Simulated scan of single mutants.
Amino acid sequence: MHDQKELWREIEQLQEKLHEIVSKKGINSPEAIRVSQEFRNKMKEYHDSKNQYEP
């Protein structure tokens, strides 16, 4: 299990990568779609980890 700070850093990196890909190849490029899915999965992982620690 990742720690929340590490997860957030990974999310920020994926977000930057997605912005770069979209600006160069377009939002509907296969690479943008793949990174977008990775971003959503990482966000879900982050939110799930936050919910795990809340009472």
Score class of each variant (00 low, 15 high):
residue 28 N to K: 10
residue 45 E to T: 13
residue 23 S to H: 12
residue 39 F to R: 04
residue 12 E to A: 04
residue 31 E to P: 04
residue 44 K to I: 12
residue 30 P to I: 02
residue 40 R to L: 15
residue 11 I to L: 08
residue 54 E to C: 03
residue 5 K to D: 13
residue 1 M to F: 07
residue 53 Y to Q: 12
residue 12 E to G: 08
residue 9 R to S: 11
residue 36 S to M: 03
residue 5 K to I: 14
residue 41 N to C: 01
residue 6 E to C: 09
residue 17 K to W: 01
residue 25 K to G: 01
residue 29 S to W: 06
residue 32 A to K: 04
residue 44 K to S: 02
residue 43 M to L: 15
residue 55 P to M: 03
residue 25 K to P: 05
residue 1 M to V: 08
residue 52 Q to S: 12
residue 8 W to L: 13
residue 27 I to W: 10
residue 12 E to S: 11
residue 54 E to Y: 08
residue 55 P to L: 09
residue 41 N to M: 05
residue 50 K to A: 02
residue 32 A to I: 09
residue 45 E to I: 10
residue 37 Q to Y: 08
residue 46 Y to R: 01
residue 13 Q to K: 14
residue 18 L to A: 06
residue 51 N to K: 13
residue 26 G to F: 05
residue 35 V to L: 00
residue 11 I to R: 03
residue 48 D to K: 06
residue 33 I to V: 15
residue 12 E to F: 03
residue 29 S to M: 08
residue 34 R to Q: 15
residue 24 K to Q: 15
residue 27 I to C: 05
residue 28 N to S: 13
residue 38 E to C: 04
residue 40 R to K: 09
residue 4 Q to K: 11
residue 49 S to G: 02
residue 11 I to Y: 02
residue 45 E to W: 00
residue 3 D to W: 00
residue 39 F to W: 12
residue 52 Q to D: 10
residue 2 H to A: 10
residue 45 E to V: 07
residue 14 L to F: 06
residue 15 Q to L: 10
residue 7 L to Q: 04
residue 16 E to W: 03
residue 10 E to H: 12
residue 48 D to Y: 05
residue 41 N to E: 11
residue 44 K to G: 00
residue 17 K to E: 13
residue 17 K to M: 05
residue 15 Q to K: 14
residue 29 S to Q: 04
residue 1 M to H: 06
residue 50 K to H: 04
residue 38 E to K: 12
residue 51 N to W: 05
residue 45 E to C: 00
residue 20 E to G: 06
residue 10 E to C: 04
residue 23 S to C: 07
residue 17 K to F: 01
residue 53 Y to S: 11
residue 35 V to I: 15
residue 36 S to Y: 02
residue 4 Q to A: 04
residue 45 E to Q: 13
residue 35 V to P: 01
residue 10 E to K: 14
residue 13 Q to I: 12
residue 45 E to R: 08
residue 52 Q to N: 09
residue 36 S to K: 07
residue 50 K to V: 15
residue 17 K to R: 14
residue 39 F to I: 01
